[in-house]
Amino acid sequence: MRFATQMKLAATVFMAVQLTLATQTTTAARAEMLSTGAAIDRYAAYADREFLLGELQKKEIRDEIIAQGVDPAEAEARLRALSDREIASIISQMEEDSAGAGAAGAVVGALLTVFIVLLVTDLLCLTSVFKFTRCATR
């Protein structure tokens, strides 16, 4: 997964801070080593979600979402409601679909804008592009 690693890292750290508040008190008592694999799974999922939410804040994406008659706040709420599994599927479908289009695994620029907008319109039942999004209002 190549795109926007830095954004994801920033998001990872951000989420880590939030997580700690919830789990800090319980971890000290347990005596076992936590595996690298579990940590990767956990933080990669947060990084993906934070990446998508971060994209929603961009002006060109916001403008396009509003142009589609969608409230950005509602779009954000729908995105937050997706499961880690669904987020992972969406990210991998974005990468797969763009791989053949010359972008080669990295979803960037105009293509990414289109993906994000379609994801949002999918979530609001206006389109049906992504395999794993469900139409949330019906």
Partner: peptide
Amino acid sequence: LAPDVPEIRQNLAQVNR
């Protein structure tokens, strides 16, 4: 690098023990 990640704290605590 990441002062508040619970996984790091737990494993560090275990090694320290």
